[in-house]
Design a protein around this nucleic acid. Sequence first.
DNA 1: TCTGGGGTCCTAGGACCC
DNA 2: TCTGGGGTCCTAGGACCC
Length: 429
Amino acid sequence: MNRVFCLVDCDCFYVSAERLFDPTLIGVPVVALSNSDGCVVSRCPIAKSKDPRTGELGIKMGAPFFEIKHFMKSHGLRVVSSNYALYQEVSNRVMRVLETFAPRIEVYSIDESWLDFSGVQGDLEKLGREIQAAVKKQVGIGVGVGFGPTKTLAKAANFSAKKWRAQTGGVVVLMDEIRRDKLLAWMPVDEIWGIGRQLSKRLEAMGVKKAIDLQRYDRKSLRKLFNVNVEKTSMELEGVSCYALSEGAEPKQTIASTRSFGERITELQGLREAVTTYASRACVKLRSEGQLSSCLQVFIQTSRFDEKPYSRTAICALVTPSNDTREFVAAALEGLSKIFVPGYRYAKAGIILSQFVSGEGYQPDLFAPERRRNSETLMKVMDGINARYGRGSIRIATEPPIAQWAMKRDYLSDSFVTDWHQLKRVKMT
DNA sequence: TCTGGGGTCCTAGGACCC
DNA sequence: TCTGGGGTCCTAGGACCC
């Protein structure tokens, strides 16, 4: 059967989502910032590639906010802090539309999905335009669509659809070899899905500069020099499918809650508060996944750019798998006490949970210490109260109600779709 | 002054076993 | 002087992705 993968991804997703609810953001340069308003993670086209004739600003992906802040005054740049609750809801709406087109779909990230059209007869380009139109009409978001016989080629198709937006209308079908190789002969190796900064540097040094060079390179050597994934990528560029569509989310293997602080922390007390907060959040995620964990890592670090850097991780094993916030907070605080050294300006801390077993039907070890009584009931009550009255309504006492070190979100939009009190109002006149 | 967060997978190398 | 070999498992670290 003819395999056909289709990649649909949203145009500058965070910015587009914000524009849905704030029309004043339309037609002006806009970027969305990462957590803590640290750096740029989404840019509209006017903010993106540099072109003085059209007034484009040339803001790079990942640019630190403080370096581009001056554009707000000089060029009317608008910025928004990340509002993940909003983006997740808009994402769900997009995915629901996509599901109506394909029998099998893999939600790949918050703003992209793989669709499987293997065996489908007919005009793929027309299909792509129908998908575009449907998402635009039903959700209000623009998307790019790429078709190919492998995931890597569908990605490449999607890339060229965006690169030559005006000519392609945002839809590219890359099913025949001549068209495929023409694009790959042009495409720089670092634009290939799966080839990042380090790999492309090494490849270029070997003379592998374009995607076509990687496609034609000796596969055995690729595996030897790099790893099996580079070999697979090379095969995928030739139309041999190595990465399948995976439906239904696999259970997570790790759960993390990590944040940079709004301001540096120097005292142990502040770190205890932060670590308690993150451990609590990680446990909420853990319970919502129906899992138990038996390993917690806690880390604290200064800024990467600090002249006096420090970074340590403590690993704490639990005797018995658990999802009880109290146990993880206790373990995290104990770990913290082992790695905390005074005299540093801490910028970030985090918790990572791992080594999961399914909570369903879990049989504790015969010799394991008895779990805390009523643990399950208590956690259920905690989650219930917090779901109903808001996060932190009930919490471990080391977690402060309002944290002094909380992350900066100076340009946060309202919770238009997740809070009754912040719904948009429409005035009829 | 100010530089994100949350994931996955692969590999090298050490520990350990027979 | 001479001091095995091969397999498995685990983990830290590095690479990638969005």
